[in-house]
């Protein structure tokens, strides 16, 4: 259910900036740190002006140490703050994995509920920016695999703002993945005085259709929507669904859609093997088996280190064209 937006359109970067500002204004325990998030306003300018607004006590730059950034957040969250920290590239979550997997995700359980860890790790995913193998990966499946971590993948400015506000108010550790290529994408967002949030675990049907369900995450939602428009010209009505959060996952909306359409493609920018597409495809096969008229198909990143060469890089991630071709194949039977 969307709020009234009065025709105001802002970028995803601005929407995230607004969410952080509003939550910092709402709760003085919300604090912010990361590499270049302060004076520079973030390498993608997402945190622009927040240091000036809230001062160095609540907003500061850190050294290049992802383990330190996240570890500090775990300790601060355990002792009462609500840190929102940035790991500039999701590729370097690898350095913070112990803090995330063995500390943040476990402390609430292992302390018998004595401690909680209300922290948000904002980070990025997505290829297509010619930044080669170490700055182009989408590693959200790594954390979605770990019980105790919530995982959010917004696809629009509206969703990004509403979901980030929910993440900051959540009493559990949340990893919030932003697609770098979506930062400058504009979309309708309500005025800042309209406080809205989007609950976790509620998939959004971005386009309704009857012939085929395309389940897509993050910026792949836009690929899927463009593909659906093209398919519509050929008489194929595709339904596009954005789960919005992987953990918790709204499986019911996905299953209901596939039961309606009998066909399902899952599109995600993570590596195809052992990834998000595999998990969702398995879920559909388990719960909507008798509705399926063709096998569930997956489109993920090709299982290779992402090449720097633009012509090669473009072959590694799903495209509008690859979705359209696959959809035609499935509908033809």
């Amino acid at each position: 259910m969307s709020m009234q937006t009065n025709g105001r359109e802002i970028t995803m970067s601005e929407a995230i900036n607004e969410a952080i500002r509003e939550e910092m204004g709402r709760d003085e325990n919300v604090v912010l740190w990361g590499e270049d998030v302060g004076a520079a306003g973030g390498v993608f300018k997402v945190t622009k002006g927040i240091l000036d607004r809230f001062g160095p006590e609540r907003v500061f730059d850190t050294p290049i140490s992802e383990a330190g950034i996240v570890g500090l957040a775990v300790g601060a969250a355990m002792t009462g703050l609500r840190p929102v920290v940035e790991v500039m590239f999701g590729d370097f979550l690898t350095l913070a994995m112990d803090q995330l997997v063995n500390q943040a995700a476990k402390i609430h359980y292992m302390s018998g509920g004595t401690f909680r860890v209300p922290m948000v790790v904002r980070t990025t995913l997505g290829a297509g920016r010619r930044t080669a193998a170490q700055h182009s990966q989408s590693l959200h499946a790594w954390v979605a695999h770990i019980p105790g971590l919530k995982v959010v993948l917004p696809s629009s400015p509206y969703d990004a703002k509403g979901l980030l506000k929910t993440a900051i108010r959540d009493n559990n550790p949340v990893v919030f993945f932003e697609d770098k290529i979506s930062y400058q994408r504009k979309g309708p967002v309500p005025d800042p005085d309209q406080d809205y949030t989007i609950s976790f675990g509620q998939a959004d049907v971005k386009r309704e259709g009857s012939d085929l369900t395309i389940i897509a995450t993050s910026s792949m939602v836009h690929m899927a929507l463009t593909a659906a428009s093209k398919l519509s010209e050929d008489g194929i009505q595709a339904e596009v669904i954005d789960p919005r959060t992987l953990v918790p996952l709204d499986s019911q909306t996905l299953i209901d859609s596939v039961k309606k359409t009998s066909r399902c493609i899952v599109v995600d920018q993570g590596y195809q093997s052992f990834g998000v597409t595999a998990e969702i495809a398995a879920l559909v096969a388990e719960q909507a088996f008798y509705a399926l008229d063709v096998p569930v198909r997956r489109l993920g990143a090709v299982d290779v280190p992402i090449p720097f060469s633009p012509s090669l890089e473009d072959l590694t991630i799903p495209t509008v064209e690859s979705i359209v071709v696959l959809a035609h194949e499935m509908v033809a039977g």
Partner: peptide, 17 residues
Amino acid sequence: APERTSGRKLISPKARR
């Protein structure tokens, strides 16, 4: 099988249901 030359027919789960 009397009438068939190829093996078992493939049939989708939905069609079977």
